[in-house]
Design a protein around this nucleic acid. Sequence first.
DNA 1: TTACTTACGTTAGAGCTTCTAACAAGAGCT
DNA 2: AGCTCTTGTTAGAAGCTCTAACGTAAGTAA
Lengths: 218, 218
Amino acid sequence: MDRRQRYREQTRDEAKRIALEQLAEAGPSGISVNAIAKRMGVTGPALYRYFANRDALLTDLIEDAYNDLADTMQGAVTQRAGHATQMRALATAMREWAVAQPHRYLLLFGTPVPGYQAPMETLAAAHRSMTAVLATVGEDTEPANRRSTLYRQLSAWGEKMQTGDLTPKQLHWGVTVWTRLHGVISLEITNQFEMTGVDPELVFKAEVEALVAWGERG
Amino acid sequence: MDRRQRYREQTRDEAKRIALEQLAEAGPSGISVNAIAKRMGVTGPALYRYFANRDALLTDLIEDAYNDLADTMQGAVTQRAGHATQMRALATAMREWAVAQPHRYLLLFGTPVPGYQAPMETLAAAHRSMTAVLATVGEDTEPANRRSTLYRQLSAWGEKMQTGDLTPKQLHWGVTVWTRLHGVISLEITNQFEMTGVDPELVFKAEVEALVAWGERG
DNA sequence: TTACTTACGTTAGAGCTTCTAACAAGAGCT
DNA sequence: AGCTCTTGTTAGAAGCTCTAACGTAAGTAA
């Protein structure tokens, strides 16, 4: 009874492994349940015992990627101390993860796959990666406009996320870190820097240093 | 001889119009040459007289989107004066274009479509949109490290692009504007802000103001 | 006006895809 | 030993891209 389940998991993993290869080679549309089955030595319909349909397989890949990225980001900040150091480590880890497997990053942040509806489990992963980002936040010194809509929304989000004593301003900074890092990474892995001849890694590093400098100022 | 060409162009346009509808509804993989033909009242293979294959149709959509976005950005800056004003106008125009038709923005900056190789004509469009961004750049005051790799790459890019008297530092600023605006827009239209309850427009505006403030400082 | 060429539509079909239905065989439990 | 659940098979429907072969209509030239 236990072995069955283990075999089952093994089959699912192998299918996902091959799916990732297809994804890297030909994008999301290059993933074919039939072709995966053939490469595994079974007929096409056999795989439908393991995945309800093609979308379910894709959803699994997305969920795995989400967790993997969250692990990476979390690992980068928890092993270090000091806001600036954590910031640099987080940024580097995030970019390296994305550059090493752009197709997986794009599965999360590229064009949404049509049939996908985020399951509950990815919420946990999203929360973990956001927590990692928020660990790099410095102290809050200046006062903010407490009556702005953005302030209230950030405040509500902070309560919902149980971020403890982080102020809305700090949460805003976290969001900004997220959007800025993503901005460079996204353009890099979609090859938009290619025609410029400018090395995206250098642009990324400069952006990280700007964030660090800004973070130390307040 | 002239009427034929006009009819031809008309047919191509209608096909592309329907393709855009499919794109909006079901993403890039939802575009079907067969289905388009059927909706136009002809059989599937007939459309292959107008597009070499499905990829050629997609490439056409990408090229159109590129030109359309470039027009929008160019229009935003040329009708206004003053760096800060141009900056705000450019940012707003870009975001509104993207939010109004996310699928088209994602066609350009989302997951790359597998068979696509950028034709020469998109280079012109890319150049135009970059020029629009560079119009918002302020004056260059502080000295920069002239021996850094990034400085040299930006310098070479500036010459290749014929940007006149813009310094590498100003070009770097242009790139930063580009990555930061894209960062927020990209995450907004892939619905990544949804779970936070934070309005991406407000985050975007704050980011624009940060850019303006930074631009005015130097 | 007649003849030729080019453009554009058709059907047939190969080969791929997802996914369902019906059936056969084996693994584990009672 | 018998029953059930799991997992494989084949057959097939319905869709896709794209090629080949063929007919017809429209524009061009003699």
